[in-house]
Design a protein around this nucleic acid. Structure first.
Lengths: 138, 138
DNA sequence: AAAAAATATATTGTGCACAATATAAATTCA
DNA sequence: TGAATTTATATTGTGCACAATATATTTTTT
């Protein structure tokens, strides 16, 4: 057996597995506000920005239109966002937070703390993990 | 704006994004042997074990039968594995590496090194990242 | 042994994630 | 200005990831 192909030798498998685990950890909390994790990420950006173009949102979340277009349609169905065209450029799609979307924010307020409470890592370790992931993403 | 809901304050978003990035980094290399990343993980276990029950494989990969059953059927279609029943227990599904599956291993040998070469993290940082992810997964 | 409970895997349905491609509008160039 | 190119988003198709549930077999209990 070659060492390099042993599961226990892999660096990326734990990362892949940890990301799955974390999204799963969010699920019960996000269920209370009827959002998936990627939807929650999009809503976080909108709570910050009020409105944003699909392309800009994609840059913030590292997701493309193939992922975002259907996701944003689902948020539109729930009346959390509205989808408009750019005023100058008709190709652009401007996503706006609705009042219903804005009203969701206070209900999400406690979720980060609650999830952190379920984590096996302390704040220091979470910070290290974040730095390493950010460097990987550079 | 509440600090706790800012995207830049999140600990898990970089982890989620980094995992997507890493799977994407593997893709061109895995394409040469016609495997997806989760399929590659399953094959790695089989290269180690030769045969394994679905449940045991799920424990190694942190995946359930809802994910593994269709994945293993696809590997079966490619004739990389065969799917049998347990000899004692008819409920069990025993997955066996085929000769074709075994023949794939040498072609995968160089992939871990190649992917590591694309990474923005050095070996030390990869090791730290792995340790943190493992602790999170405990 | 028959009924009940537990176990292993499969199925169903939803929502990503992404590559590849399509569409349509804007920009650049001839 | 008209054609070619670029840009922004949408569409299509594949394969996860998982919750919820179903099925079938085994084990335990009565």
């Amino acid at each position: 057996m070659t060492e390099s192909l042993k599961l226990s030798s892999q660096y990326c498998f734990p990362l892949y597995s940890a990301a799955n685990r974390v999204v799963r950890a969010y699920r019960p909390f996000l269920k209370t506000i009827d959002l998936t994790y990627p939807q929650y990420l999009a809503m976080m950006v909108l709570w910050e920005e009020e409105s944003i173009l699909v392309g800009q949102l994609g840059k913030r979340l590292n997701l493309d239109s193939g992922t975002l277009t259907p996701l944003l349609k689902r948020l539109e169905c729930k009346q959390l966002v509205s989808r408009h065209r750019g005023s100058e450029d008709e190709r652009e799609r401007l996503i706006k937070l609705t009042s219903r979307g804005r009203a969701l924010q206070p209900l999400a307020e406690e979720i980060p703390k609650q999830v952190a409470g379920c984590m096996k890592l302390n704040l220091d370790e979470l910070e290290q993990l974040r730095q390493l992931c950010r460097k990987l993403l550079d």
